[in-house]
Design a protein around this nucleic acid. Structure first.
Lengths: 356, 356
DNA sequence: TTGAAAGCGCTACCAT
DNA sequence: ATGGTAGCGCTTTCAA
C-alpha cells in the first residue's frame, strides 16, 4: 500500500497537519521541520493521493477537452497546443471525442463536470447551444472556453479564427485566379461552416459573380465525404472551375475525385481548402488553403482558461480571433506568375512553401 | 451547489445508504424504493461526484495514455481506437505526450499514478525500461499495457506489430524493385527502431547485398529530421538508389529532400516508409509503406487493459502482435508491372489504393 | 430490506 | 509554529 501523510507524521512524531503544510510549502511551518518532513517523504517515495486532494481541496488539476475528431490533424494540433501550455502548471487533460455527434458531446461534458474538472475546452459539434448545454455550462459555475466553433454568442469565452474572412479570402483568391464558376463544399451548420459559407457568398457578391444554387452542397467534414460530394459536383453542367472546400480533408477528398475523373487540378478545377493541416503542402497537388494558426488557438485557449480558473471573481467573457491567412500552393495557381517579376501570389507561395 | 445523495435522502426521508444502493442498482433495495429514488434524482438533476466516488470506491474510471507525440497521426489514430473501446464502459482518457523525452514521460506516469488512474497505456520514448520506470510500473499493482514499443520484455502486456518483419518486408520489396544500394533512415533506439533496423539487415543479408556503413543513419521520428538526414545521404558517393525510412513522416521529409535535389522518386531513389498514415496515399508521390493496423492496436490495447482491470487476480502478461503488411504505391514502383498481366505488385497497389 | 458507523486521504479553519 | 476538529461526497462493512 502506498505511503500516506499519516505514515510520515507518525514516523516523525509530528501531526498530520504539519506534514500537509510542509509538503505544500505553506507558511507556518518551521524551516527545520519542513526539511525533515520533505526528506522523509522523499525517502519513503511519498506521492500525494490526488483524488483525496481533489476532493478536499476542490481542485482537480484536470482539464476536459472535447473535440469532434481526434484524427483530424487540426484538433490533434490544437490538443498539442493546449497540453503544451497546461502541463507546466501541473494540469492534465481528459480528452473526449464527440464524433461530431451532439448527444455524445453532451454526455462527455456531463461526465467531465461530474469528474469536477477545473475547466473545459470545447470544440462543439452543435450548430448552436441546446437548452441542455446552456444549463450544463452556464447553470453551474463551470469555467470553459469554446474553440474553433462558437455556440454561445457573447456570453462565452471563445478562441478561433474569423471564418467569414477565411471564406472570403479563399473565394476571392479563386476569382483572382480567373475562376468564374466557383462551387463550395460546405461543412455542417456549425459556426465555422456558416462563417466560411457567408464569406464565400460575400466574395462572389463583391465581384458580381452569380452561381447556380447547386454549386453549394454539403461536403461533410472528412475526405471521404468530400470525395462523394465532389463527384456530385462533377455531374453538373456547366461544371465548376473552382471549389472552395470547408476544410483540408474535404479538399483532399475533392481533389481525389477530380483527378480520378481525369481532370486536372488546378487547370480544370482549382481547389482551396481551409486549415493548412500538416502535409497539405506535400500532397499530390499541393493544396492552397487558409492558415488557421492551429497551435496558437490551442495555446490561447489554455491560457484563457487558466486565467478563468486562477481568478477568484468570474472574468467577463473574452473573444480571441486569429486572422486567417491565405496560403497559395499549386492547387489554385492557374496563372503563371505575372511577367513583371515576382508577383504577390508567387512570392506568397514561395514564402509559405515550408511554412506550417 | 450541486445536489448530493444526502439531499435526496433527506428529501425522501430515507437513509443515505439506500440512495447510494438504489442509484447503483445494487441488490438489497425494494423495487418501489429504487423507483422513488431514481425518479427524484432525475428531477433534481443529480450527478454523482466522481471524485468522491473514486476516493471511496478505489476506482477512478480514468485511463492514462502516454504517447511520444499527439500530432503524429499514428498515435492520434491509436488514441481514437482506445477511446472507441473505452468510452462505452464509462472510462475517460487522460492523455499525456512525452515529446519523445524520457524524463517527461516518467513525470507523466508518476502523476497519472498519483491520480489513481485505473490503468495505463504507454508508448514509451525510452529504449528500455529504466530502474525508475520498473519501480513505478512493477512496484505497485499498476495495470498497464505497452503499445507500439516494448520496454519491459516478457513481464509486461504489449500490443504492437512485428517490427523486424516490417523492416524485412520493406527492404526486400526495394530489392525486388531492383535497388542495390539501399539506405535506412533509422529511428532512435526504441524497440520499433531496433526492430525495423534488424529487419533491414536481415533482408540485405538474405539477398547477399552489402551496403556501406554510412547508408544507415538516424532520421529521427519526424518529417523535418527525415528531411535533414536525407540531405546527408544525398552527399554520399555512390548515392543510394533506395531508402527504407523509420516511419512515414520521416519518409515524407526524405522525399521532399530528394525532389528538391532535382531527383526523381522512385526512379532515382525509391522510398518506403512505415505506418501507413492518413494521406500517405495522397502525397505528391504516393508513399509505399508498411501498414501497422493502427486502429486495431489501440482497440486491442484497450481491450487487454480492461481485462486486467476487471480481473481480480493479476493476469499473466499477454503479447499481441499484428502482422505488418506491405502497401505498394508509386514511391517504390520502379518496374512497370510484369507484361504477363497483373503482377503481384500492381494488383497489390491497386487493391490498396484506398485501403487505409 | 434498511441504515448506522467507519472510513477513503487529504485540506480548511480555528484553536492552542 | 503546531495540531485538533470537521469536513469533502461517496462506498464498504456490518448490525438491526
Amino acid at each position: 500500500m502506498p505511503v500516506r501523510m499519516k505514515d510520515i507524521a507518525e514516523d516523525l512524531g509530528v501531526s498530520l497537519m504539519t506534514v500537509s503544510k510542509a509538503l505544500r510549502n505553506h507558511p507556518g511551518v518551521a524551516e527545520e521541520t519542513r526539511r525533515r518532513v520533505c526528506q522523509r517523504a522523499r525517502e519513503l517515495d511519498y506521492e500525494p493521493n490526488l483524488i483525496a486532494r481533489s476532493l478536499a481541496g476542490h481542485r482537480s488539476f484536470l482539464i476536459g477537452l472535447v473535440v469532434p475528431d481526434l484524427m483530424h490533424s487540426f484538433f490533434a494540433e490544437v490538443a498539442k497546443g493546449i497540453e503544451g501550455r497546461l502541463a507546466p502548471s501541473g494540469y492534465q487533460i481528459v480528452i473526449c471525442s464527440s464524433g461530431e455527434d451532439t448527444e455524445t458531446e453532451l454526455r462527455a461534458i456531463k461526465l467531465l463536470l461530474a469528474r469536477k474538472v477545473d475547466g473545459l475546452i470545447i470544440a462543439s459539434a452543435a450548430p448552436h447551444a441546446s437548452r441542455s448545454m446552456v444549463e450544463l455550462l452556464e447553470g453551474g459555475k463551470a469555467r470553459y472556453v469554446l474553440i474553433d466553433r462558437v455556440v454561445l454568442n457573447g456570453k462565452a469565452n471563445y478562441v478561433g479564427v474569423n471564418d467569414d474572412k477565411a471564406g472570403f479570402l479563399a473565394t476571392e483568391h479563386l476569382i483572382e485566379q480567373g475562376c468564374t464558376r466557383i462551387a463550395h463544399l460546405r461543412g455542417s451548420m456549425v459556426s465555422t461552416g456558416r462563417g466560411r459559407l457567408r464569406g464565400y457568398h460575400r466574395a462572389l457578391a463583391k465581384h458580381g459573380l452569380k452561381v447556380p444554387l447547386e454549386y453549394v452542397i454539403s461536403g461533410g467534414h472528412q475526405d471521404s465525404t468530400g470525395y462523394d460530394a465532389m463527384q456530385r459536383l462533377l455531374q453538373l453542367n456547366p461544371r465548376p472551375d473552382g471549389v472552395f472546400c470547408y476544410n483540408d480533408p474535404v479538399a483532399i477528398g475533392a481533389m481525389r475525385a477530380i483527378i480520378e475523373a481525369g481532370l486536372d487540378v488546378p487547370h480544370d478545377i482549382a481547389v482551396v481548402g481551409a486549415g493548412n493541416i500538416r502535409y497539405s503542402d506535400m500532397l499530390h497537388v499541393p493544396l492552397s488553403t487558409i492558415n488557421y494558426s492551429t497551435l496558437q488557438v490551442g495555446q490561447s485557449a489554455a491560457e484563457l482558461l487558466l486565467q478563468c480558473i486562477e481568478s477568484k471573481t468570474p472574468l467577463p467573457p473574452k473573444r480571441i480571433l486569429f486572422p486567417p491567412r491565405l496560403v497559395v500552393r499549386k492547387s489554385s495557381l492557374r496563372h503563371p506568375p505575372p511577367a513583371s517579376g515576382i508577383g504577390r501570389v508567387l512570392a506568397s507561395a514561395q514564402l509559405q512553401k515550408h511554412a506550417r
